[in-house]
């Protein structure tokens, strides 16, 4: 039970961040307790919020909730109408002043309180100007289009930075793993992922090729930002395309199988024939 209480406190601290939102919320509740006369509002917002606060902080309730899913227990706090009650209390406070000038000054102070206590969501470093309606990086789109075959869904291994986005755009290519692999707390393991991402400076072509074949990958996509120890050609791959900083290699074994079964697009065959026609270094 002590552990549950600790977890509740931890969730409250994490939820509140470095702000004083919880204090503002409690102040708003106290203010409304004394000044709100409408019985419907008292019942549906004030009493209910207080009861929810007590229930959600109750160790027995929290223990049951955490048994279901400990990681997301903090979401029960969403059921507290924090924003609605705080803003309502602020407007009621503004309305208590008699002249327009006084009301305007207090309203500006209320806006300052909201702004200074909070953090603007748009200044978050994860916000970017979008370049397309999908809201995913343009290179993912070009890469997915380059990997797609009209008559077959191949398997491709991709660099980690593409994993969160690739499958949001296309399901026409299978991937041995996705974003699950880049979340360390989820504890997924893959030898292929280790071969691709284990060394941030360099790919070991032999290791990548071996692991990719174990995972039945027809395509291996490598970032041009990293060096390649050895070459994929030595591992019986050929360079199919270079798209937005990424090399797309195709396994020659899969190429033959797909070709035999008429699964390849004409441009892939053309590219392979062009590569084969080049004199060997």
């Amino acid at each position: 039970m002590l552990k549950t209480i600790e977890k509740i406190c931890e969730d409250v601290i994490l939820y509140n961040g470095k702000s004083i939102t919880l204090l503002i919320f409690l102040a708003a509740l106290i203010f409304l307790w004394f000044f709100e006369k409408n019985k419907c509002v008292r019942t549906a917002l004030i009493y209910l919020s207080i009861a929810e606060l007590i229930i959600f902080a109750c160790p027995i309730y929290a223990w049951i909730g955490m048994k279901i899913d400990e990681a997301i227990y903090y979401r029960v706090f969403w059921a507290l109408p924090v924003g609605i009650l705080v803003c309502y209390a602020l407007v009621l406070f503004v309305s208590h002043f008699d002249t327009f000038g006084k009301k305007a000054v207090v309203a500006v102070m209320a806006v300052l309180l909201i702004g200074l206590n909070g953090r603007l969501v748009y200044t978050n470093s994860l916000h970017f100007r979008s370049s397309n309606a999908y809201h995913i990086p343009a290179q993912v789109i070009e890469l997915a289009d380059a990997l797609k075959l009209d008559n077959y869904k191949p398997i491709a291994v991709l660099p980690a930075e593409l994993l969160p986005f690739f499958r949001q755009y296309s399901a026409d290519v299978f991937t041995p793993y996705g974003r699950n692999m880049i979340e360390p707390q989820w504890n997924f393991k893959s030898e292929l992922y280790d071969a691709m991402e284990g060394n941030p400076q360099e790919y070991d072509a032999a290791k990548v090729a071996e692991c990719a074949r174990n995972e039945n990958c027809a395509y291996v996509v490598l970032s041009s930002a990293k060096q390649i120890k050895g070459s994929m050609e030595e591992q019986n791959y050929f360079l199919l395309n270079f798209v937005q900083g990424y090399f797309i290699y195709m396994d020659c074994n899969y190429y033959e199988i797909y070709k035999e079964r008429n699964l390849l697009d004409a441009d892939v065959i053309e590219r392979k024939e062009a590569v084969s026609a080049q004199p060997q270094a």
Partner: peptide, 16 residues
């Protein structure tokens, strides 16, 4: 007020 409250509501990753 409420529109600003939501805009400035990014006090942590966990808030509504």
């Amino acid at each position: 007020f409420i529109a600003l409250w939501f805009a400035f509501g990014n006090i942590s990753l966990y808030t509504a």
